[in-house]
Simulated scan of single mutants.
Amino acid sequence: MITALNASHEVRLLLQPYDFELSQDMRPFLEEYWATSFPIALVYLLLILVGQNYMKTRKGFHLQWPLILWSFCLAVFSIVGAVRTWAYMGTLALSRGLKHTVCFSESIEHSIIKFWSWVFLLSKIIELGDTAFIILRKRPLIFVHWYHHSTVLVFTCFGYKNKVPSGGWFMTMNFGVHAVMYTYYTLKAAKVRSPQLLPMLITSLQILQMFVGATVGVLTYIWRQEPGCHTTAEHFFWSLVLYTTYFILFAHFFCQAYLKPKAKAKAKSQ
């Protein structure tokens, strides 16, 4: 009994917002200028072309220490975001049910989610810098990378503007995957040996994220007739389109990166 009470007290403490999470709400400003995400994404794509053209006749930069610092900062940010959002969304889902977390506005009105939502949105702009390191170091830039970065930025701003509660899971899952991913990038940049299965695990988590995200979107659309359940057909359509394309692209990358090489090596040995 005492253990249960202590655990309950710890949970309540975990769900209490910190002072920095009670800072000024940026929602009015970000809602008003959400469409700015389109020109930002366009400039991002143009800079990719300019950067690749600039580096075509030049040697790639080393950039080890800047890359370590960049990846480390994003790893710490993602870990803290994952802990805070998973604690709240997980507790709410266990206590009130999944429907409550994807239909009703209680989740997005809580101070923890309100703070991390607008910080998460701004992080999608900052994360575009990942591509700069790829181009400047003359590493292969695959389609799924720039497609994912640009569309996630626009979709995050779109969902934030519409105040769709299911967006809380989009943010929470993304924080969780990025916590693992940027930790791996930090270790890789620092040339620290990590488990060989870690890259495969990260891609698997990304695929799972897309599947769960599409499932949440479908459930939200099914539950939309519930009194007070807030979603829009427009948001459902675009979330389904994007999650489906992400799922296909990451599944294809998984096959190309982890399954085909093994198949070729097996064929050679025979």
Rank of each mutant, 00 (worst) to 15 (best):
R224C: 04
Q256C: 10
T220I: 02
G60D: 07
G90S: 09
F170T: 12
I125L: 01
L240P: 01
L42G: 08
K161Y: 13
R139M: 07
I135K: 06
L5H: 13
E32D: 09
L22V: 01
W169E: 01
T231Q: 08
L74Y: 05
L67I: 01
I48M: 04
L67W: 03
F133K: 00
L153G: 09
K56L: 13
P66I: 00
F158Q: 04
H178V: 02
L198I: 00
L208E: 02
P17E: 06
V80H: 10
S107T: 15
E32P: 03
H252F: 13
S107N: 13
I68A: 02
V180K: 05
L141N: 06
F143K: 01
T131Y: 04
V76Y: 03
I125E: 05
Q225G: 00
L98G: 11
M210G: 14
M173W: 08
E226C: 05
H230A: 09
P28F: 08
A190K: 12
A189V: 03
L42I: 15
T85Q: 12
I142R: 06
P165Q: 04
Q225A: 11
K56Q: 12
K59P: 03
R58K: 14
M171R: 07
D19Y: 08
V152Q: 06
C255M: 11
E234I: 12
V164G: 05
T245N: 10
P39C: 03
L92I: 06
G51H: 07
K124Q: 08
N162E: 15
P199Q: 02
V218F: 15
L5F: 12
Y221I: 01
Q196V: 05
T172E: 01
G60E: 05
K161H: 14
L208C: 15
M89A: 13
G217I: 01
L47H: 05
L205V: 11
I126V: 13
I112C: 02
L30F: 12
F170Q: 10
Q196R: 11
F254A: 10
L47A: 11
G97I: 07
L242W: 07
I135L: 06
L242M: 13
D25I: 04
M181V: 04
H235Q: 08
F104T: 04
Y54K: 10
L121C: 12
M171D: 02
P17C: 10
I135R: 05
G81N: 10
